[in-house]
């Protein structure tokens, strides 16, 4: 009788075997759930509040500092925003990504999920997209609030520059999310994954730049070497690209920036896009391979 009740809840297509949903549908299902979970999570709320709050502070300070002169091309606002994005977005994306797989594995959820008619790639992509949606929402809310304040204060900030900043921040977030997810698939435990993600953040934000600075000065590095090395860092790529978008040149970055503009010219966008794309695709692909090879338990 109980069985009958259970059966009646579902329309059973008897006889013909049902075909499992395709990749796209499963990815959508999983990403929807992941997104829902993410935006309810404490980390999302805290990061969003921190990002928007700091951004608003920067906007207000810079609006006061220019004395409402209404002049603004490239100034403290954009620089401050870039700085803020460089600090907050990678940390958020890396830790979000790091939590994605490892904690599920630790709590046995991954095993349960994979016992359903889904593939590992679907689970990975679904989680990635869901988290990406949450990050997009966080970035848009934060930068949108800042742009609102700037508009209200009558600052002449270029709307196109704001849009570029938002788009590139999202690009950076995707790259960092890929790295976080890779860390997550490699790490044995969730705590290890998050720790590694924070370490990766420190490395990308501070250690690599400071090391490169020291190295460049100590080894008397040539400008093209310096530029080539700095393009390896997705954070630098984000920074240079947003500057380029706001200013149409990189000469604000001194000789190295000038070199980049002269050497690559119109191809600079392609170069940056390529680097960022590589940082998005390669770690994600590596994560997919790792996940398919590793046992989910």
């Amino acid at each position: 009788m109980i069985a009958a009740a259970i059966h009646s809840g579902i329309q059973v297509t008897s006889g013909a075997e049902r075909v499992p949903p395709g990749l796209a549908r499963n990815v959508m299902t999983i990403s929807g759930r992941e997104l829902r979970d993410a935006v309810r999570a404490r980390w999302f709320v805290l990061y969003t509040l921190a990002f928007a709050g700091l951004g608003l502070a920067i906007s207000l300070v810079s609006a006061t500092a220019t004395g409402g002169s209404g002049l603004a091309s490239f100034g403290r606002t954009t620089a401050g925003m870039i700085n803020l994005v460089l600090l907050v977005v990678p940390l958020m994306a890396l830790t979000a990504g790091a939590g994605a797989i490892a904690s599920d594995r630790e709590r046995g959820m991954l095993q349960y999920l994979l016992a359903q008619p889904v593939s590992r790639l679907e689970v990975l992509l679904g989680k990635y997209l869901g988290l990406a949606g949450a990050l997009l929402s966080c970035i848009c809310l934060g930068l949108g609030a800042c742009a609102g304040v700037l508009a209200w204060k009558g600052m002449g900030t270029d709307p196109a520059a704001v849009l570029w900043l938002a788009g590139l921040s999202f690009g950076l977030a995707l790259a960092m999310l890929s790295c976080g997810v890779l860390i997550s698939t490699l790490a044995g435990r969730a705590s290890v994954a998050v720790g590694t993600a924070v370490f990766a953040w420190l490395t990308l934000v501070f250690v690599s730049d400071l090391g490169l600075m020291a190295g460049a000065m100590a080894l008397r590095m040539r400008i093209e070497q310096l530029f080539a090395l700095s393009v390896m860092n997705p954070l630098q790529v984000f920074k240079m690209w947003s500057l380029h978008a706001a200013d149409a040149s990189l000469d604000v970055l001194g000789p190295a920036g000038l070199y980049a503009t002269e050497e690559y010219g119109k191809w600079l966008h392609a170069l940056f896009a390529g680097c960022l794309l590589a940082w998005i695709v390669v770690p994600l692909a590596a994560a997919a391979v790792t996940l398919s090879r590793r046992s989910p338990i």
């Binding site: 009740a5 259970i6 009646s8 809840g9 579902i10 499992p20 949903p21 359903q116 008619p117």
Partner: peptide
């Protein structure tokens, strides 16, 4: 995930 529509929850 199992490719079913929205099920009748009560049942």
């Amino acid at each position: 995930l199992k490719g079913l529509g929205v099920p009748a929850l009560d049942a």
